[in-house]
């Protein structure tokens, strides 16, 4: 029953660790670092969207909270990066706790609208406050070491993947979340507390997002409300997860890689047609929602398991009966 694709995890991780030794081109390393970041953001988004059934259009706010927390602690309080970064995750988690109390009572479109509105409020706050630098944003000390950020991003995302794999695919927690997604009333009758589980999922989704925001801030050395608190992070993560396959951990990885590769290639070779990028992206999403609602990975996996059951049927009724006869 378990997904065997996890066995690819270790070899892929080893290749990724060895990669900077092969790639000397800093631009290319930078592109891969960003791709890894998007994988992390898409994974975290999927905890709530795919597993729990709540589309969080305020996902980007946690990214921004992590980025600003790290930046403010480093610049105003003169904390070292190693301490400021975890605080980014902690504050994103606290933010999720506060935002979740009112919003997790809502469902479907109402939850999406409420989280979107909250994230707009957070962006406005960053625009008017002094400590965040208002619309001018914040500049961080530059630490020009592409390898360092590559490995840091890789470590954060690999740890996120491992944690989510354990919690969502191995421990009971993942199945409980899916029960809430499928029918929260039915889940309640089975002894599950939906409010508690949804809150745990929300925090689990927010903390890695906040940490990634912190890494991003120090890496890019400049953050402003438009780049870290805009709609971009939520929208992009949503598109990646839907295209790759919601409710799985492999789907967001595939979706993030393909969408990010498309975006990067487009901007590299067709930057004169920027408008076209959004149009094509929109069309791809509309088509994938209509024709492959389970996303790329969901559809592939569905086809594979269907093949398996058909093979089972071919074994004939005798094979099917034997286990019950044995008892």
């Amino acid at each position: 029953m378990k997904d065997k694709s996890i066995h690819w995890g270790l070899p892929i991780l080893l290749v990724l660790i060895a990669l900077p030794a092969v790639i000397q081109d800093t631009f290319f390393l930078r592109v891969i670092t960003e791709a890894i970041m998007w994988i992390g953001l898409a994974l975290a988004f999927d905890v709530l969207a795919g597993y729990t059934g709540y589309l969080n259009f305020g996902h980007g706010a946690f990214f921004g909270v992590g980025a600003y927390t790290t930046a403010i602690l480093m610049m105003q309080a003169h904390w070292p990066f190693a301490l400021a970064l975890p605080m980014g995750g902690v504050l994103a988690g606290v933010g999720a706790l506060i935002a979740g109390l009112p919003t997790l009572r809502l469902k479907g479109a109402y939850f999406a609208i409420a989280t979107w509105a909250l994230s707009r409020a957070v962006q406005q706050l960053a625009l008017i406050m002094d400590i965040t630098g208002g619309p001018d944003g914040m500049r961080l000390p530059s630490f020009l070491n592409p390898q360092f950020f590559y490995y840091l991003m890789l470590a954060v995302v690999a740890a996120t993947f491992a944690l989510l794999w354990y919690l969502l695919e191995c421990s009971p927690f993942g199945l409980k979340l899916k029960a809430i997604r499928e029918d929260d009333q039915g889940a309640m009758a089975l002894g599950l507390n939906p409010t508690k589980l949804k809150m745990q999922a929300f925090i689990l989704s927010a903390v890695p997002t906040g940490v990634l925001g912190g890494v991003y801030a120090y890496w890019i050395t400049f953050i402003d409300p438009a780049s870290t608190l805009g709609d971009l992070v939520s929208d992009q993560a949503l598109v990646m997860v839907v295209f790759g396959g919601m409710g799985t951990l492999i789907g967001p990885v595939i979706g993030a890689l393909l969408i990010f590769a498309f975006k990067t290639l487009f901007w590299a070779y067709l930057s004169d047609f920027q408008l076209l990028y959004l149009i094509i992206l929109g069309a791809v999403i509309a088509l994938s929602v209509v024709f492959i609602p389970n996303g790329l990975w969901g559809t592939l996996r569905g086809a594979r398991s269907q093949k398996k059951t058909e093979e089972k049927k071919d074994e004939g009724p005798a094979a099917k009966l034997s286990p019950s006869e044995g008892e």
Binding site: M1, L175, K178, A179, R181, E182, D183, G186, L190, G247
Partner: peptide, 15 residues
């Protein structure tokens, strides 16, 4: 109220 997207076994495991 079956958990429609899950298998029968998973439904019972959750309970």
């Amino acid at each position: 109220k079956p958990f429609a997207g899950l298998t029968v076994l998973e439904n019972i495991i959750i309970a």
